[in-house]
Design a binder for these strands. Structure first.
Length: 510
RNA sequence: GGGUGCGUAGCUCAGCUGGUAGAGCAAUUGACUCUUAAUCAAUGGGUCCGGGGUUCGAGCCCCCGCGCUCCCA
């Protein structure tokens, strides 16, 4: 690109050529920028000294010598000018600190510069730390240097940025104005590190699995479709890493995990987003009971590491993530919440009971064709309608109907069930786990069933994956597998009501 | 996909029964060397989301569209 930049942007009337939405506030700031350059000050210098962060200064005030010069830097958030003295509040990654500037300390020439500084500029200071007469820990600046000139005004200093659309569209501003938002994304990173620490400590190997693939599986979901031009090939984006992690196990990795993005081309709501971060792990010689222990210990580890506590208050309810969590079978929960002993009833008896019981209005309102569903599917619908939302405290819902997954072992004591669990908290599903199916013949039957459902028009069914089936033929050790929705974990960890609040850059229309 | 509420200055928000567009912060100018949402005085700043309609007259009423919020499937 050939773009000749003028040293000074004097031709402010040309701004519309490079800026969609200039206004007088921006023009004023560019005027300041021009004046600084005319004084020989580079508004975008290359580097600055190592800085001490605001929180460290607040925490260690007593240990600093009065004469000791400290270097701080940050974005100007507030400016209180009183003629020959000025107070600034600057914000760094850790928080805010006040800076005191006076003409007598800086000398008239440097002090005059601050007239050309604006709120939002990034400025570095050297000075000694002291307490003002009102007690605020403050840096008395002896030197100052502009580090970055901001040409666009920040939102209003008190109310900040409120509009949900603007906050997502301009997440940088949201993070500047709302300390908790910046902290939320830092905590997200800390949590992901903690998960890796925990898993690595148990001798799990971190793996990567494909995003682009000619087939998809491991989850019930509509995939995204795209093309690899170089191969003239239609491909899908992964809906789950499961089948590849199992192939790594067949290859001899006994403990494997991954944490990455999966994609499901379905609805968006408070707890669903089309691209989401999925953690999955597989552990040889373990079953789903072992995976429950792993999950509750992992949650406990992450919450202690990041929040210092396993207890949170979410949506007005105190939730305790300390291990162990409650375990309850799906059929027991349905029995408790509907009065129907579904485990010991035939499908016809259940259908009849739903029809005759006036209390079961929720499920009737959904206009499901219950008579044509399997018994297991009806049980799952009853669970969704009557039990799921009641699970406030962390609970493992265990022993799902056999038809609920093609990748899970049958229950060792009841062939109508499989050894599957989903953990719930605050009525939200947190993950999914199995005693993994490794019987190659049963696996092939179930995969072919999926493929024929797909051909029959069920868009969430998976196509046959012959390479995966071949790997299972070779032999996968008995194993427990566990998937955890990381975004939902982050919602609880950071007390966020919506999944979009824990995704830094959600999709924006236009 | 269905319902609800919203869209006004850079930001946060008012705007009555349809009658010339408002405030605070931010900005500009001035005063002020311990302020902290600093204070005081003055000044400038608008595609009222877009399009159409009703009306003498629309930010406001009606229709269509766009975007967002919340609830529901």
């Amino acid at each position: 690109m050939v773009l000749t930049m003028k040293k000074n942007y004097e031709n402010i009337s040309d701004l519309s050529e490079i800026m969609r939405d200039s206004n007088e506030l921006i023009v004023d700031r560019i005027r300041h920028l021009n004046q600084l350059e005319e004084r020989g000050i580079n508004p975008y210098p290359y580097k600055f000294k190592e800085v001490i962060h605001s929180r460290f200064i607040h925490d260690n005030f007593a240990h600093f010598d009065e004469e000791q010069l400290l270097t701080v830097a940050g974005r100007v958030m507030l400016m209180r000018n009183m003629g020959n003295a000025t107070f600034l509040n600057i914000r760094d990654q850790e928080g805010d600190i006040q800076v005191y500037l006076s003409k007598s300390n800086l000398g008239p020439e440097k002090y005059e510069q601050i007239k050309l500084f604006d709120i939002g500029d990034i400025i570095g200071f050297e000075g000694n730390v002291f307490r003002t007469k009102t007690g605020e820990i403050t840096i008395k600046a002896q030197e100052l240097s502009l580090l970055t000139k901001s040409i666009r005004p920040l939102p209003e200093k008190y109310h900040g940025i409120q509009d949900a659309d603007l906050r997502q569209r301009h997440r940088s501003l949201d993070m500047i104005m709302n300390n908790d938002v910046r902290e939320r994304f830092i905590n997200r990173a800390r949590a992901m590190s903690a998960i890796r620490e925990f898993m690595n400590g148990l001798n799990f190997v971190e793996a990567e699995t494909p995003i682009l693939d000619t087939k998809y599986g491991g989850g019930e979901a509509k995939p995204f479709v795209t093309n690899v031009n170089a191969m003239d090939l239609e491909v899908f984006m992964n809906v789950s890493p499961e089948l590849y992690l199992k192939r790594l196990m067949v290859g001899g990795i006994e403990r494997v995990y991954t944490m990455g993005r999966s994609f499901r081309n379905e609805g968006i709501d408070r707890t669903h987003y089309p691209e989401f971060t999925l953690f999955e792990c597989y552990m040889a010689y373990a079953d789903y009971h072992d995976m429950m222990e792993l999950m509750e210990n992992l949650y406990e580890y992450v919450f202690l590491k990041v929040n210092g506590s396993t207890k949170i208050v979410y949506d007005g309810i105190e939730i305790e993530f300390k291990a162990p969590w409650k375990r309850a079978t799906m059929c027991d929960l349905v029995k408790l919440d509907t009065g129907l002993d579904v485990l010991n009833m035939s499908k016809d008896e259940i259908v009849e009971a739903i029809a005759s019981k006036e209390l079961l209005i929720n499920i009737k309102e959904q206009n499901l064709d219950i008579a044509s569903m399997t018994k297991g599917d009806i049980i799952m619908e009853l669970f969704d309608a009557y039990s799921a939302s009641k699970l406030q405290q962390p609970t493992f819902v265990i022993d799902f109907p056999a038809e609920s997954s093609p990748l899970c072992k049958l229950h060792r004591e009841n062939a109508d069930l499989i050894e599957r669990f989903e953990p719930y908290a605050n009525g939200v599903e947190l993950g999914n786990a199995y005693s993994e199916l490794n019987d190659p013949l049963r696996q092939r039957i179930l995969l072919h069933e999926q493929a024929s459902k797909l051909r029959a028009g069920l868009e969430t069914a998976s196509p046959m994956d012959e390479e995966f089936a071949l790997a299972i033929d070779i032999g996968m050790p008995p194993a427990g597998g566990l998937g955890i929705g990381i975004d939902r974990m982050m919602m609880f960890l950071t007390n966020s009501y919506s999944i979009k609040d824990v995704i830094a850059f959600p999709l924006i229309k236009r």
